[in-house]
Write a protein that binds this DNA or RNA. Structure first.
Length: 272
DNA sequence: ACTCGTGTTAGCTG
DNA sequence: TCAGCTAACACGAG
């Protein structure tokens, strides 16, 4: 499910396939996904315009629209995908990342049209859809991006140490806080902490400068690798987050607990 | 039937 | 006031 790497993939899907096409119609009738907008509000704001750029910060993405139109915010939530079809109606891009609990192998059920929560129909006959089984995604005009921290892939080491090291929360909770650094989800957090050999329960006020520096390096590396390999589920330790799973470096049995409100797996021998 | 979950956030607590 | 935590959100999968 979407963390920063998957959202970056969705952003590229839009950038490569959905820009500069005239918007003929918009189905924004899913009032939950499009809240707090009333039905028709997003349609009226977009019709006749074009998407002209696709941007991303952390897990949030948005499109700029032509003629000084509003920003179109798209958040994939936990199960959202962006699907773009060309003028012939065939899928050209998107929805192709695999793996995870709701990924891969579910293509047949994935076609259910009622899981299309938001659809832009272009004048050429193609479309852009937000497909979202669990309905935890969001579509909104001019989304509030001010509360997001710097993007996890772009944040510089000094700012990272300053932001992540502040407070007393467990380091994993700090990484998951989107206002601290934007883009880290549960799997990327576990992968990063494993790469950095840090115990996810460590309070950030016990981390020294070198540990924070190493954490920053691990995060950038894990994020870049996940984007390159096609998703956060390709992380080295992710497949071992399971009962009886063993650390792929040392063979110790992985430990499980809830940290920062999320299921957390780590190697008790190496992550200290 | 019942629990869990790759995300976000309102609301509670110390 | 604020940092930190919990429950709730919606709903499919195991």
């Amino acid at each position: 499910m979407p963390e920063l790497p998957e959202v970056e993939s969705a952003r590229r899907t839009v950038e490569e396939g959905a820009l500069d096409r005239e918007i003929a119609d918009v189905d924004d009738s899913d009032t939950w996904e499009c809240r707090p907008h009333a039905p028709g509000e997003i349609r009226d704001a977009l019709r006749g315009r074009r998407l002209v750029a696709a941007r991303r910060r952390g897990k949030s993405m948005w499109c700029e629209t032509s003629d000084d139109g509003p920003l179109l915010g798209l958040h994939l939530g936990m199960s959202g995908r962006i699907l773009v079809t060309g003028p012939d109606g065939e899928r050209t891009e998107g929805g192709d990342w695999l793996g995870g609990r709701y990924g891969g192998g579910a293509e047949r059920s994935d076609r259910k049209p009622e899981w299309d929560r938001f659809t832009i129909t272009f004048a050429d006959g193609g479309s852009l859809r937000l497909f979202d089984k669990r309905r935890l995604g969001r579509v909104r005009l001019d989304p509030d991006l001010d509360r997001l921290g710097p993007d996890a892939q772009q944040v510089r080491v000094g700012e990272f140490r300053e932001r992540v090291g502040r407070g007393t929360a467990p380091v994993k909770a700090r990484l998951l806080d989107q206002s601290v650094v934007a883009g880290v989800g549960n799997l990327l957090a576990d992968e990063t902490l494993w790469q950095a050999r840090l115990d996810p329960r460590r309070r950030v006020d016990t981390l020294d400068r070198d540990e924070l520096t190493g954490l920053h390096r691990a995060l950038r590396r894990a994020t870049t690798a996940a984007i390159r390999r096609g998703g956060v589920h390709t992380g080295e330790v992710v497949a071992h987050r399971t009962p009886g799973g063993r650390c792929p470096r040392c063979g110790e049995e992985m430990q499980r607990a809830t940290v920062g409100g999320r299921t957390t797996w780590w190697c008790p021998a190496e992550q200290v």
